[in-house]
Design a protein around this nucleic acid. Sequence first.
DNA 1: GTATATTTTGCATTCGAAGTCATTATTAAG
DNA 2: CTTAATAATGACTTCGAATGCAAAATATAC
Lengths: 339, 339
Amino acid sequence: MTKTKRVTSYDVAKIAGVSQSAVSRVFQKGRSVSKKTREKVLATANDLGYQPNAIARMLITKRSGMVAVILSSRVNLIYPEVLSLLNKRLSEKDERVLLFNLDDAAGLDDILEHIWTFQLDGVIAIAAHFDNESINKFKKHQIPVVLYNRRVAGHSASSVCCNHEQGIFELVDILDNFDHKNYLVISGPTESDVALERCELAIRALANKGYKNVPVQYGDFTYKSGRHAFSEYMASHPPPTAVICGNDTMAIGVIDEARKNFGLRVPEDLSVVGFDGVNAVFWHSYQLTTIKQPVEQMTKSAVDILLEQIASPENPPQLRVWSGALIEGNTVGPARNEK
Amino acid sequence: MTKTKRVTSYDVAKIAGVSQSAVSRVFQKGRSVSKKTREKVLATANDLGYQPNAIARMLITKRSGMVAVILSSRVNLIYPEVLSLLNKRLSEKDERVLLFNLDDAAGLDDILEHIWTFQLDGVIAIAAHFDNESINKFKKHQIPVVLYNRRVAGHSASSVCCNHEQGIFELVDILDNFDHKNYLVISGPTESDVALERCELAIRALANKGYKNVPVQYGDFTYKSGRHAFSEYMASHPPPTAVICGNDTMAIGVIDEARKNFGLRVPEDLSVVGFDGVNAVFWHSYQLTTIKQPVEQMTKSAVDILLEQIASPENPPQLRVWSGALIEGNTVGPARNEK
DNA sequence: GTATATTTTGCATTCGAAGTCATTATTAAG
DNA sequence: CTTAATAATGACTTCGAATGCAAAATATAC
């Protein structure tokens, strides 16, 4: 029942026989304090169990030491990995992660309200949909943003992206070299910018090879939706020989559906490629050929850029693009072109 | 270059022709303000784009509106789901999530330091290892904690757990009914409390059925480690007929290893069970028989308990245990008992 | 109409550390 | 040993909202 009051810098000051300013200075780096007082203060601080109150510090310094990470969660198996790495990198730079889930009932506006009031140092938005209007709000509130895998028109915000073009083109090249002619694209949901980008690139890459009007089915990045998209297509079309999927999870769904409900062998009868390089692509039952998103570099860049923008807000927005690496699995083979 | 100053309650007060207190009261619920002033204030606040500064509020109210979630990440596919649900539930109660990853170089102590200085409202620790010493620190700092899937000796902290005993016993019952006699347990890493608990329960459940000295291999909850543990065991023992795994991901690894490198069919030659109920257990290539952790209820309870503790810190710690649900897959069958 | 109860209001203070500035102690240079 | 330069220190103010309290305004009862 003892409502222990917090130990403040004043308490320490009094006991150590110095001023509050002195105590404060001891807990800041690069401030001149004599060795004698520093030791005195540190000793009594330790005795009393004193630690500077971060909230009070935030109020006066106007830096919260917190970065918001906005996540459109669940959608993709790779996000947990991204989040974990971002957290790690930010911690190293002494920034905490305040997490926001965008897919909850509460929309973006709701999240933004919170971001303003919390005086965050910056924001990293993972594949969330931001239009220029939102970006302008950040400008107005003078909070740096870095978009992850999302570019915004006119380069008005910094972003770190996977080079989807390079990745998709590489996959299409491989398929084309195997003489595939009957393609199916299974895209992620139209609300997702990443999904749209990958889908358009696939269509463009195929067009370059001379394949126009490639059919597209839409899923929502989940396993189930991959299966469903494939069976939907099969219900009214002759089987394709190659399927290009918007992400790995759907690709795995396609493989299972093809094998189970259509008796197709992968890769003998059907080639399948995905995107992302999640752990499951290495599982023996799938061994998916896909592109690994360079998560390490991307998260590092995102944090670097963000910190730069925090330090020098007047710097122009940056764009950094990283190429993914091909994972050569076992789901691509020569086309079975029947005639 | 215009360093726009933040709009404060004083600014609004001056323009609206009221006192700062009045402005403050408008933005708190359950405070008496006349309709007239409320409207005036709200109008000018809107004009100026004023929003209360959360940091200043935290300082005076001593509530940060933030809850720390400590995650031992990566280890388990189910954590992202847990995190996402916790975030959602906490947002509904107007608490933000400050995320900490325990497996980074920075250890628990480092995280705790931050927790004290941030004056957090509470902490939810997901399967992190907390000893009584750590719990006592929380008591000293008067910060409520809820442990997720982790009990601490002497009920000194609240926790929400999956009923691993019921789950494991149910799985063992099923295997026993299929007349299995040669078991192998593949446990998660010894640093993990959940892993240890599941492993011990499996051993106890088997002992109840008369099987003593059941062999145990250790993995680290990953797919690879599941495969490796199984092949290690097979290298020097006759094949078991049933494998009980510490989680789903390792179970999937075992299935792949058994099929690929030992030509065993699942479930005809080998029965495999897991634990957690991650999405991948439904994938057609596996269809794992497992126990689904009741994540919905567990996260709800965790948040409920935490908020109760925040509201009434003097209340005793609570323990809530939820039973998992059996997922009847296709990886368990009659034992192939050769003699 | 007055007297009493109730709601609104503003003043002044508080939360806890950090920054400004003038003053004092210490060191280096001559 | 004096003078100049530098380092260390404390008093006071600041950040921005919330709150206890007394005064003022409004509502209710008689």
